[in-house]
Design a protein around this nucleic acid. Structure first.
Length: 873
RNA sequence: GGGCGAGUGGCGAAAUUGGUAGACGCACCGCACUCAAAAUGCGGCGGGAAACCAUGUCGGUUCGAGUCCGACCUUGCCCACCA
C-alpha cells in the first residue's frame, strides 16, 4: 500500500471499474404487493445543460448521492437517476449568436456535463438518463398534453404577450429587461393579445392546497409559499345593478361591510367599461384605459401605489339599501382576480380608503369596536379593519363581524343578489411559447374541423432541425411552410400545425415519473414501475423552485392519477432545499450596480483596494456568479484535490439548508483529513498480523468484548467506534446533518490515532467501521482502502455497520456539581451509580465542601448520571 | 404592508427534547523534525490577573435558560394594490 493518498490515480480507476461492473444500476423491484421491496427513490433536480457544472450542482448532487449510497448499504433498492432539462432559451440564443444549431449545442453540453458528473463519482444509473429534448422523451410530453386535452384541462384563449415592435417578435419574460426593453433590439416592449394555450391548474387549486398538509417532510416555508401562491379567499359574490341596466358582479371577503359600500371600482380592462360609461365621460375613460394599458408592472409599483382613477359618469345601486353609488375605474383593481370589479368600503379597507380620500368620495363606517358606545363625530383618520360590531347594517345590526359574515350570505341568497364564493389567486398556466427550442404542441388547426389533436399513433410531432433562427419576425416554426402544412387527421384537407411550443416547465413536471421506466418505447411508463418507485422519497434542489416547479409537478401527478395512470397523490415525500454556494468577493462601497463587485483575484487580501481607483474595499461572500467574478470552477478543485475532497468539504462546511461560504483553506483542511484517514489504515496494514485481526473484526468483536478480555483503553476505543456508528447513522437518517456526521468521522479517526492500539483487534474494528462510514461521503477513497484491506467486492455493496449497545456503555461518567444552578465543578463516578450515591458523592466532593461549608442546604436537585445541584440559602 | 426564518469566539459552526456553552474544523501562536522552508507530528487557542463575565438588547418563568414566554433592535428570504 502506498503511504500517500493519491486521488488523481485512484478516482478514475474506480470510476472505470464501477462502470464496467454496473455497480450503480437500479435493481428491479418486486411487484408483489404482499411483499413490497424496501425501495428508496433519491432525486436531485435535474440540471439545464449549460455546458459546465457549477458548485451549486456539486452541492446538490453530493447531498443526494450520500443519501443514495447510505440507503443502498442499508438494504434498500435505490433509484438514483439523472437527466437533462434540455429545452429552453439559451440554446436558441447560442444559435442566434454563434450559428450553432440548438440540438448540437445542447448535446455537446450534455456530453461535457455527464463527463463531469462521472468524474465526481455520483452513483447514477445512466441507463435511465432522460433528455427532455430527445424525441423519445418529448413523445410522451406530447402524449401527456393529449391526456390533459381529453380531460378538458387544456384550452386556448387570448392573452397578452411581450411584443418587440422592432424585431416583430414575441419575447419571453426573461428577454425583457427590468426597464421593459427588449434584450436584442432595445425597443420598449408592448403588450399584444394572441391566442395562447393554457392548462387548467385552477381546477386542482383546492386539492393542491389541501394536500400540502400531508407533506410533513417538506420545509414549512415551502408549504407556506405554495399556500400563499394558491391564495384561497373565502367570501361572497354580490350582484350590483346599475342605471344603465347592466349587472355588475363583485367579489368581496367582507360581505359583512356591504352597507358601508359607497362606490364601485372596476378594472380598466373590464369588458363592461364601455357600457357603463356615460357619453360625457367617454373621452376621460378611454384616456385612462390607454394610460393603464401602456403601463408595465414596473411603472405600477414605481408610482408608490398612488391611487389613480376616473369616474364613469354613472351610478350603481347598492342592493341592500338601494343607495345610488358612483362607478369608478381604477387600475388598483386587477382584471385577473375575482370578477375584476369591487365594492369599495373605504371605512374598512386601506386601498378603498386612500382612493376615497383622494377623490373625495363618501366614507360610511359600519363596524365599530365592541366597547365604543358613541360614534366619533370627526371623520376617520384611517380605515378600521379590526373586529367589532355592526351598525347601520339593517338585519346585521348588533352582530359581531364573524357572525355577520355568515348571516349576510343567507340574506344575500334569500334576496337573490349574491352567494358565498371562494376565490383563488392561482391562475391557469399559460404554456404556449412562440419559440423554437421546445416541445411542439401536438395540435392541428383545420379550417373545417377546428382544433384537432394529433392522433397518438402520429406522435411524436418531431421538432424540425432545418430552422433559421434570427430572433426576428414570427415564431420560428411558423416560418417553416413545409412543416406547418399537414393533412387534417379528421377530414384530410390541408391544415396547419400549431407552431407554438410548450413552456419548459412542462418537461420538468413529469421527468421524475419517466425515470421509473425510462427506456419504455411503448408507454409513458409502466404503471407497476411508476407506482412501485413513486413517490420520490427524497427530493433535493434549490429553493428557487419552491413554487412553480414543485406546484406544477404536483399538479401533473394528480391529473395523471385521475387519468388512471398512477396511484400516488403526491410526487415528493421529503424535500430538502439546499442553500447557495457563495464565493469571496469585494465590494467598493462608493460604486453602485454591477461595477461595485471587484473579483477577489484582482485584490490583495491584506490590503483590499480597488485596482482602478485605489479606494478601500469591503470583503464579503455572495452567491457565485460571472458578473461578480467570484466563482470557483469544480474542475479546478477536481484537479487539485479530487472528487472526494470536494464532496467532503461541501458537506462539512455548513448544514445543507444554509448558504455555504467557499473557502480554499477549508478545502485544504478536508484534504488533510482524508490523508489522516489514509494513514490510519496504512499504519494498520504495516503491522504484522493485521490480516488475522482484520478477520476477527469482520466476525465482530461482541464476543470478545463480552468475555471481558479488553483493556480499559480498548473499551474506550471501542466505545468511540460505536458512538460514531450511532451518530453518523442518526445524522444522515434523521436530519440531513452531514456536517456533524463528518465531524463524527473526524472524532473517530482522532480517537484511533490517539489510542496507540494499532495492533489491537479493536483497532481493526475501528478501521472496518471508519471505512464503511466514510463510503457514502468519499466513495473512491473508501473503495481503495477496502481493496487495500484485501477485500474483493465493492465496499458500496457492504452492509452498514450496526451499533453494539453494550459497547456504548461507559465505565465511568462525569457528574456536574452546581451551586444554585451555577456549575462549580465535576467529579468522576462509576457508570452504574444510583441517585442516592450520586448525591452522597457530590456532597463529599471537594467543590461542594468548599461552597457548602457555612451554608444551609435548602434543596438538592439530582439529575440521574448527570448533575447534582445544591440550592443554598 | 403581509408571511416565514436567523442573530453563539477572529471565522464556518456544535450543543441528547431546559442540565459542564463553543464539539468538529479553519485561521492564528508555540514546540519538534529540517541548513532552511513546505509537509507532518505534539501542545495552546471566548474575555479576564483573579473573583468572575460571556450565546443581539431588556425583562419574565425555573433549582438551573443559547434552548421556554413577552417586548425591542439588527438582518435574510418569499409574496406584495389579490378586494
Amino acid at each position: 500500500m502506498d503511504a500517500r493518498y493519491n486521488p488523481q490515480e485512484i478516482e478514475p480507476k474506480w470510476q472505470g471499474h464501477w462502470q464496467s461492473i454496473g455497480l450503480d444500476r437500479t435493481p428491479s423491484l418486486t411487484v408483489d404487493p404482499q411483499q413490497p421491496s424496501k425501495k428508496f427513490y433519491a432525486l436531485s433536480m435535474f440540471p439545464y445543460p449549460s455546458g459546465k457544472l457549477h458548485m451549486g450542482h456539486v452541492r446538490n448532487y453530493s447531498i443526494t448521492d450520500v443519501i443514495a449510497r447510505f440507503k443502498r448499504m442499508n438494504g434498500y433498492a435505490v433509484l438514483h437517476p439523472m437527466g437533462w432539462d434540455a429545452f429552453g432559451l439559451p440554446a436558441e440564443n447560442a444559435a442566434i449568436d454563434r450559428g450553432v444549431p440548438p440540438a448540437q449545442w445542447t448535446y455537446q453540453n450534455i456530453a461535457q456535463m455527464r463527463d463531469q458528473l462521472q468524474r465526481l463519482g455520483f452513483s447514477y444509473d445512466w441507463q435511465r438518463e432522460v433528455t427532455t429534448c430527445s424525441p423519445d422523451y418529448y413523445h410522451w410530453t406530447q402524449w401527456i398534453f393529449l391526456q390533459f386535452w381529453q380531460a378538458g384541462l387544456a384550452y386556448q384563449q387570448e392573452a397578452a404577450v411581450n411584443w418587440d415592435p422592432i424585431d416583430q417578435t414575441v419575447l419571453a419574460n426573461e428577454q425583457v429587461d427590468s426597464e421593459g426593453r427588449s434584450w436584442r433590439s432595445g425597443a420598449k416592449v408592448e403588450k399584444r393579445l394572441l391566442k395562447q394555450w393554457f392548462l387548467k391548474i385552477t381546477a386542482y387549486a383546492e386539492q393542491l392546497l389541501q394536500d400540502l398538509d400531508r407533506l410533513q417532510g417538506w420545509p414549512e416555508r415551502v408549504r407556506i409559499m405554495q399556500e400563499n401562491w394558491i391564495g384561497k379567499s373565502t367570501g361572497a359574490r354580490v350582484l350590483f345593478s346599475s342605471e344603465s341596466g347592466v349587472g355588475i358582479p363583485v367579489f368581496t371577503t367582507r360581505p359583512d361591510t356591504l352597507w358601508g359600500a359607497t362606490f364601485l371600482v372596476i378594472s380598466p380592462e373590464h369588458p363592461l367599461v364601455e357600457k357603463l360609461t356615460s357619453p360625457e365621460q367617454a373621452a376621460a375613460v378611454q384616456a385612462y384605459q390607454q394610460a393603464a394599458a401602456s403601463k408595465n408592472e414596473l411603472d405600477r409599483t414605481a408610482e408608490d401605489r398612488e391611487k389613480t382613477g376616473v369616474w364613469t359618469g354613472q351610478y350603481a345601486i347598492n342592493p341592500v339599501n338601494s343607495q345610488p353609488i358612483p362607478i369608478w375605474i381604477a387600475d388598483y383593481v386587477l382584471m385577473g382576480y375575482g370578477t375584476g370589479s369591487i365594492m369599495a368600503v373605504p371605512a374598512h379597507d386601506q386601498r378603498d380608503f386612500e382612493f376615497a380620500q383622494k377623490f373625495g368620495l363618501p366614507i360610511q363606517p359600519v363596524v365599530f369596536p365592541a366597547d365604543q358606545a358613541v360614534e366619533a363625530s370627526e371623520p376617520l383618520q384611517a380605515p378600521y379593519t379590526g373586529a367589532g360590531v355592526l351598525r347601520h347594517s339593517g338585519p346585521l345590526d348588533g352582530l359581531p363581524v364573524a357572525e355577520a359574515k355568515i348571516k349576510v350570505i343567507d340574506y344575500l341568497e334569500q334576496q337573490g343578489i349574491g352567494s358565498a364564493q371562494i376565490t383563488y389567486r392561482l391562475r391557469d398556466w399559460l404554456i404556449s411559447r412562440q419559440r423554437y427550442w421546445g416541445c411542439p404542441i401536438p395540435v392541428i388547426h383545420c379550417a373545417n374541423c377546428g382544433l384537432v389533436p394529433v392522433p397518438e399513433s402520429d406522435l411524436p410531432v418531431i421538432l424540425p432541425e432545418n430552422v433559421a433562427l434570427t430572433g426576428r419576425g414570427a415564431s420560428p416554426l411558423a416560418q417553416l411552410e413545409e412543416w406547418r402544412q399537414v393533412a387534417c387527421p379528421h377530414c384530410g384537407q390541408t391544415a396547419q400545425r400549431e407552431t407554438d411550443t410548450m413552456d419548459t416547465f412542462i418537461d420538468s413536471s413529469w421527468y421524475f415519473l419517466r425515470f421509473s421506466d425510462a427506456r419504455n418505447p411503448q408507454q409513458v411508463f409502466d404503471s407497476l414501475q411508476a407506482n412501485g418507485w413513486l413517490p420520490v422519497d427524497q427530493y433535493v434542489g434549490g429553493i428557487e423552485h419552491a413554487i412553480l416547479h414543485l406546484l406544477y409537478s404536483r399538479f401533473f401527478t394528480k391529473v395523471l392519477r385521475d387519468r388512471g395512470l398512477l396511484q400516488v397523490d403526491e410526487p415528493f415525500l421529503r424535500l430538502l432545499t439546499q442553500g447557495m454556494v457563495q464565493g469571496l468577493t469585494y465590494v467598493n462601497p462608493n460604486k453602485t450596480g454591477k461595477d461595485k463587485w471587484i473579483p477577489a483575484h484582482l485584490v490583495k487580501p491584506e490590503d483590499p483596494r480597488d485596482p482602478q481607483t485605489g479606494e478601500p474595499l469591503e470583503a464579503c461572500y455572495a452567491t457565485m456568479s460571472k458578473s461578480k467574478g467570484n466563482g470557483v470552477d469544480p474542475e479546478d478543485v477536481l484537479r487539485h484535490y479530487g472528487a472526494d475532497t470536494a464532496r467532503m468539504f461541501i458537506l462539512f462546511k455548513a448544514p445543507p439548508e444554509k448558504d455555504l461560504e467557499w473557502d480554499d483553506a477549508d478545502v485544504e483542511g478536508q484534504f488533510r483529513f482524508l490523508h489522516r484517514v489514509w494513514r490510519s489504515v496504512y499504519e494498520f496494514i504495516e503491522q504484522p498480523g493485521w490480516a488475522e485481526r482484520w478477520q476477527v473484526a469482520q466476525q465482530g468483536l461482541t464476543n470478545l468484548a463480552s468475555q471481558g478480555s479488553l483493556t480499559a483503553a480498548e473499551r474506550d476505543l471501542r466505545r468511540a467506534v460505536h458512538v460514531a456508528i450511532q451518530e453518523v447513522t442518526e445524522d444522515i437518517e434523521v436530519g440531513y446533518l452531514f456536517n456533524t456526521a463528518i465531524s463524527e468521522l473526524m472524532k473517530l479517526n482522532n480517537a484511533m490515532s490517539d489510542s496507540g492500539l494499532v495492533t489491537s483487534p479493536v483497532y481493526a474494528e475501528a478501521v472496518l467501521t471508519l471505512v464503511k462510514l466514510l463510503a457514502p461521503f468519499a466513495p473512491h477513497m473508501a473503495e481503495e482502502l477496502w481493496s487495500q484491506l484485501g477485500e474483493a467486492g465493492s465496499i458500496h455493496q457492504q452492509t452498514w455497520p450496526q451499533v453494539d449497545a453494550a459497547a456504548l456503555v461507559a465505565d465511568r461518567i462525569t457528574i456536574v456539581v452546581q451551586i444554585n444552578g451555577k456549575t462549580r465543578g465535576t467529579f468522576e463516578a462509576p457508570a452504574q451509580i444510583t441517585d442516592a450515591e450520586q448525591e452522597e458523592l457530590a456532597k463529599a466532593s471537594e467543590i461542594a465542601q468548599k461552597h457548602l461549608a457555612e451554608a444551609t442546604i435548602r434543596k438538592v436537585i439530582v439529575v440521574s448520571k448527570k448533575l447534582v445541584n445544591f440550592v443554598i440559602a
